[in-house]
Nucleic acid binder design. Structure first.
Lengths: 342, 342
DNA sequence: ATGAAAGCGCTAACAA
DNA sequence: TTGTTAGCGCTTTCAT
């Protein structure tokens, strides 16, 4: 039976109101002796306020919810760390959820978080629950991270995919490639994926290289599927219908592609070069170390949390949503044949 | 202004109790028409019960807390997935926390979760908050995962480190190694780390190999520190005071060691072999693919969640704690010179 | 500088 | 089969 505010009040010989004031830092008109006595009783009893009761009354919980798309992706965990550190510093609690790239799970988590009366939400959304998210944003500040939702007006932190892709393709071209394929996950509702595909096409055009439908591979990411599609593309030996380089739209894809290529015993970069969007800790331990376009993921998590806190501190901020775009950076390693050409 | 149970009651022309009964599935003595009317009003108003109010009254929240040691470690995220799937199926919510291997953060998270009235806790503990955790376990079922706390009586799911280490050392010996070093993070309060060190010593003894203090490297995991220590150990070329193989106590260490060795241009396994405890997704993409002792992490997460649910379903279970031990499995790849010797 | 009392939204006896 | 009532533990006017 946990100790309640009433018990503390009784022992300190004051009323519940006074204890409550003490708990909420309203020391202004409070006797120094009273404060001391209360502090002592609280310590003695190891009293902890019931946050449910408090939340019920105050309608604020000092808790932020965060939903990531896929917790197995290092991209998500780095973002989480960025969010976590910032919130911790600001004194907010964090409830973490993993939507597992499943719109239904995402919906359930959003509802759960709203039910738990979170004060704010940071979400790397599947893009399939925009009406729900827009509705939440009416009562509770929401910040989108990584993925935009143009049709709803919400604070967003994202990365400049177009610029990143341009750097990637430029690099591949500079290293001698002319036949560049791209592998991506389905990009129906997910803005960066779509942007990257469009930027890929634009970058090819910029170099007067033709865009070939059959070199744009959409895959669910399943490894055998990726292997099969790559087999069809590059398995038959080099010729003018096979690409010499593969641009991977995110790190999960990059890993699948590298894995498939290794299994097929297609040498990287000798036979086919690989360049990935998004860096991760051990990309450089792979053989060959993978050249990537790195996103400042930790900083993005930071920023998202700060934007949320700003809204919370100024509840009547202009509703004009802020869109913050981070710049990605090309990290040249060895998977594009760099050593030969540069 | 969210809609409350009172509003639903008013519109449905019944009392709050009836709505409450409906919400809690007590349809037994309820008119079919009443049910229908309630269902309709709820749908119309998009009513969602206030979980804070409910939790305050019921003293249960249908929510489980989980604290992992380090969310950047694939070990943690796989466990999370195991926990998540099982809880989801059982209809429990999950609040995820990342202690970041910091006892103070861990303490804060435990307190936060208790304050939020979680029904149960799964924790991969730093080992520095045992009194607190034992205290929590009095009122709220706790399951320890991966790391044991022998001095407190709590359900635990862990892995048979001794057996795993034995397999690892046996394998290294069978492949021709006689001079085997070990690298570990500090193991003061963390049971598997200590067990692995002890098992390493025992396994050496089993093969009549001497244990050398200077070949047991304790490190904070910082990369430059690891590099410096490895440099001292194997940097000077092969001789009888330098080990021919390194056993890494977990995957973070494995990555640090591989990274350091690569930077030092020490060939694996030609110059030094590497074997790691704990597998992860892309261990086989590294060059050379790393031989590891794999833990059934997802299953461990599953099991921990199931044990917790069992306690919750049978609140008056014997307090006798269950210790479940999973068996690890050696995955032979290429980092121990396997191709030459087998 | 502090207390009394009402009420946040819900559930659970107890009545009817 | 349903309603009345009394809280859960806290905060917050309004008094004093």
């Amino acid at each position: 039976m946990p100790v309640t505010i009433a018990e503390v009040a009784r022992r300190a010989g004051v009323s519940k109101s006074t204890i409550s004031r003490y708990l909420n830092g309203m020391y202004e008109h409070m006797g120094a002796d009273t404060q001391e006595r209360i502090a002592q009783v609280i310590a003695e009893l190891d009293y902890r306020p019931n946050t449910l009761a408090r939340g019920l009354k105050q309608k604020r919980t000092h808790t932020i919810g965060a939903i990531v798309a896929n917790i197995l992706n290092p991209f998500s965990t780095s973002i989480i760390r960025g969010i976590e550190d910032t919130l911790q510093e600001a004194g907010f609690n964090l409830i973490l959820c993993n939507a597992d790239d499943d719109p239904a799970k995402e919906r359930d988590y959003v509802n759960m978080l709203v039910d738990k009366q979170i004060d704010g939400l940071i979400i790397n959304t599947t893009g399939c629950n925009n009406p729900l998210i827009a509705q939440v944003n009416q009562q509770t500040p929401v910040v989108l991270i990584d993925r935009k939702a143009p049709e709803i007006n919400i604070d967003t932190v994202t990365v400049d995919s177009a610029c990143g892709v341009r750097q990637a393709i430029d690099h591949m071209v500079s290293v001698g490639h002319r036949r560049i394929a791209m592998v991506t996950l389905p990009y129906d509702h997910i803005s960066p994926r779509l942007e990257r595909v469009q930027a890929y096409q634009a970058a090819l055009a910029g170099h007067r290289l033709p865009f070939r439908e059959e070199w744009l591979i959409r895959t669910g990411g399943d490894e055998t599927e990726v292997a099969a599609k790559l087999q069809a593309l590059v398995g038959a030996g080099s010729h003018e219908n096979s690409p010499t380089a593969i641009f991977c739209a995110n790190n999960l894809i990059t890993m699948s592609v590298v894995r498939a290529l290794k299994k097929m015993r297609v040498a990287i970069p000798d036979k086919v070069s690989v360049l990935g969007f998004d860096d991760w800790d051990w990309a450089e331990l792979i053989e060959p170390p993978i050249t990537v376009v790195a996103q400042p993921v930790y900083a993005m998590g930071n920023k998202a949390a700060m934007m949320l806190i700003k809204r919370l501190k100024a509840p009547r901020m202009p509703k004009k949503p802020a869109i913050v775009m981070f710049q990605p950076e090309l990290l040249k390693r060895k998977s594009c044949g760099e050593q030969e050409a540069e």
